[in-house]
Design a protein around this nucleic acid. Structure first.
Lengths: 190, 190, 190, 190
DNA sequence: GATGAATGAGTATTCATTCAT
DNA sequence: GATGAATGAATACTCATTCAT
């Protein structure tokens, strides 16, 4: 799919993103997306075959971009804790500055719209993070537990914190962020 | 006279719970609920004014019951860590054995169906947990940080872990649970 | 149909009457009737087989009573104009003091609920009035035109006036009533 | 681009008009309207937000058009009686040749569907007729009574006559029309 | 390609009527 | 008889998708 007007394509995606943030997937309507993107309803179907495809596309797009952004933070020459801190702050920063994207990824995870393929690809994207955690365990800096445990522990707490922050207006000052990071580090460190 | 049948009322709620677990709120249909509860469509409307009210009722009901179950675990005579462990395991156990309820609470949190009132009441229910954390801080067992931070940290990681467990079939053995608990405790302890 | 409780039977009819006055037949609900009559929905069906029967019963009942009341006013010994004035004032008085009944009769006339039999019976009830008009024509006091014309002319204007009176709060003072009567009389008089 | 089709809009309104004439407002179904207008159910909702709005729109449209048609008959240069006769015949003719519209206006007047705004606007539309009646009174051709009385007297009798005509098949021959007009004129004339 | 009106299957909701208590 | 919960067919309305312009 290589549509002439990439701006329109992007506008539609951003509109969908915003709609999901505001109303949840349960309330997502093609017409609302079109309206917010300032195109006609039919135009959405020029760029995306149907609602499912649009949603799956959004999921993968934002999942990829968010994880790639994280991986870019890893510098193998740096000691583990430096990388870990870098990663933790990047993730947190992403979740805080892109609440719409974070919400979308979360909401889509359990929605019946998401295809099995999308789920699987999302899984693979975490690989580099797993690698880093493995190194930490080899260096006996990280508790010798399953990566699943570590990942759930880290991502769950970061997401929840970010969510509370923009839902309840709980301000995450530098001090609080450092405190939260300390909890994460103390939790996983060996 | 035929009084409202509490069993039917309960059947409808359980059916709705199950439907949300299976299809997500986005796909929730009144007819499916009725079918699963083995009543006529109209009967659902005898007990709940409409879909919104049913959903809000479910949210508050399960939110309350889950939190009340937690509070019951707290025994003021016991030392802090005993209570904390008790609480952590109860919460985890709830999330693991009631995936439908956990899913419902999560899904509803961001859904447009949920009323502001329901959200506010949900907030109040956490008070006793906050009390316990305050004690922990007074006894210098818990990091002197905001309860928001602690709660997000704990609940986020537990929920995420439980979710991964039933979504990906990641088995939470007693060993893994103890490891997860250790992460939580190390994370918050002073 | 001879139900034990005639009070309940009457309460239901009055409730239905009131409901039609307030909401129109279009909005008439069996449950509203029951509620207003302070009985259970099912009870309405003890006294009336179904909605149609209730409506047809109401129509005939009030049609009869209203016309019988009129006929009672006719005194063959009195001169025509005395009888006519008596009749006109009685009809107007009925329409003014029983807006609910007047509304019901009007609304039902065109509703699909009304059976052909009911319509026909209603027609017959006007016979005595027709008789009086015939006498008036014989005495060359009334224009020699079809009774249909006279009846439509008289009833139409009376009903419309009464309707405006309670719909718009247009007060029908004795003076205005006498003016209206004058219009009616001048209109039909030979 | 596909602009809203005025023909379709008109077809829907005519269909609704016809449906109300045939079944009464009580029996009005959106699906019947769509079927009669030969469009899909959803199409009706493209042109009218919902049933209420459609009904209110119909009321005002036909109320306006019927009254405007009347006013067009008034020619200030003509003597009062000429205008009055013109008006009376126009009104009667309208009621006779557009039974559906007449029925609709009548049925809607008391229906719970009609908004207060619609009622109020309808009231204003009668102004020019009132003007004419005022002139008649100034010229001492018309009885010096309230316009309300005159209007109710005239419209009530015309409507009732027209109704009887198409309900009972009572034919309004030229002779009978002239007789009816005479009754109206004799009724109001000073 | 772009538009937005048109479609109609799908859903929420209502309400006359039945029926177990 | 009286009750009001239960029923489910009927109906209003929605929304993903198509299609004529």
């Amino acid at each position: 799919m290589k549509p002439k007007d990439e701006q329109k394509q992007e506008a539609i995606q951003q509109a969908a993103l915003q709609c999901i943030f505001e109303e949840g997937i349960a309330g997502l309507k093609m017409e609302s997306i079109a309206k917010k993107a300032q195109v006609a309803t039919g135009t959405v179907y020029v760029y995306f075959k149907n609602k499912d495809e649009l949603i799956n596309h959004l999921f993968l797009r934002f999942k990829r971009s968010s994880i790639l952004a994280l991986e870019a933070q890893i510098d193998v020459k740096q000691p583990f804790k430096v990388n870990f801190r870098q990663l933790w702050y990047s993730y947190m920063n992403f979740a805080l500055t892109n609440p719409a994207q974070a919400t979308l990824l979360e909401q889509l995870h359990r929605s019946p719209y998401l295809s099995q393929e999308a789920r699987q690809e999302a899984e693979k994207l975490l690989e580099p993070i797993r690698q880093l955690l493995n190194e930490g365990k080899q260096q006996q800096l990280v508790k010798p537990v399953d990566n699943e445990l570590l990942l759930a522990f880290l991502s769950g707490s970061i997401n929840q914190l970010a969510r509370r922050s923009y839902e309840m207006g709980f301000e995450l000052t530098p001090l609080r962020l450092e405190q939260a990071f300390a909890m994460a580090w103390d939790g996983i460190k060996s």
